[in-house]
Design a protein around this nucleic acid. Structure first.
Lengths: 142, 142
DNA sequence: TATTGTTATACTCTATAACTATA
DNA sequence: TATAGTTATAGAGTATAACAATA
């Protein structure tokens, strides 16, 4: 039976903040193990589908000029490549190379603390959590 | 009635990643509105209680040398102060000033996307979400 | 000897402003 | 004119290594 008094938003923010911190620290550790920064891991994970420089910057919520340096460094390491777009020649399409995709996949498959915590939940907890996270995620993505 | 087949950890990781991204982007926006970086906001929020340089670095999951520069910049802006510890004179105790505390409080109180999303949930959803986030958070905090 | 904090160094991340090329 | 991407620049975040002071 659910608690008759719904929790205030403040308590939820507090609790969510702790989860977010745990997730980010874990991502930093897994990325670092493979010689990547957290930002570089985010880029590679975003590049599961090709993106223009612009879309990538939007995904990262950063300035476009930032994306240039970010991608240049990853390109120098052979993890992504840039190609001029056919449709609109102002645009460049950034694609992860095979090495980049494989690295992103390995990092995503690690996240030991996050996966450990989720695996330690009961089946009922996992079943309850997923729709709530999905709902929160779609409300959050403006 | 709960779904008979509990969701795989992979789906939960995916969904959690989206929520985490939404939270971080929102924090960056609220912090930036007050002239702070995301990291600086994290420091000020952590300093709701005084911490040694060491503990602060651990909280941020970063090297101690990093904390020195971080705190130096915040100190130059009058948001925190450092004092030698009485008990152990190797240690320094970092405390948020009144200005620092007030700024942290304002940033925490904003987070418009996060609060908006949480407020848009039904009472039942909020009541279900809090214990799950608490549980995940304590499993995640190693 | 071990711990706490700092400095020096080098690299990455980040935004602003000014620029080129294309639409 | 507006958009996509880059460059130059400056500041912030980050780790490594070497160091001083204290325990």
């Amino acid at each position: 039976m659910p608690d008759p008094t719904p929790p205030p938003v403040d308590a939820l923010v507090e609790s969510l903040a702790r989860v977010v911190r745990g997730y980010y620290d874990d991502l930093a550790i897994s990325a670092g193990r493979h010689g990547l920064t957290t930002t570089q891991a985010r880029v590679l994970i975003a590049l599961r589908e090709p993106l223009s420089m612009r879309s990538l910057a939007e995904h990262l919520a950063c300035d476009a000029s930032n994306a240039t340096g970010l991608i240049a460094r990853l390109e120098a390491r052979g993890l992504v490549c840039r190609a001029a777009s056919e449709a609109d020649r102002r645009k460049k399409v950034v694609t992860a190379t095979a090495a980049g995709r494989s690295l992103a996949e390995r990092i995503r498959a690690e996240l030991p603390a996050v996966r450990g915590a989720l695996a330690a939940l009961t089946d009922a907890e996992r079943a309850g959590l997923l729709p709530l996270l999905d709902r929160l995620g779609s409300l959050l993505a403006r």
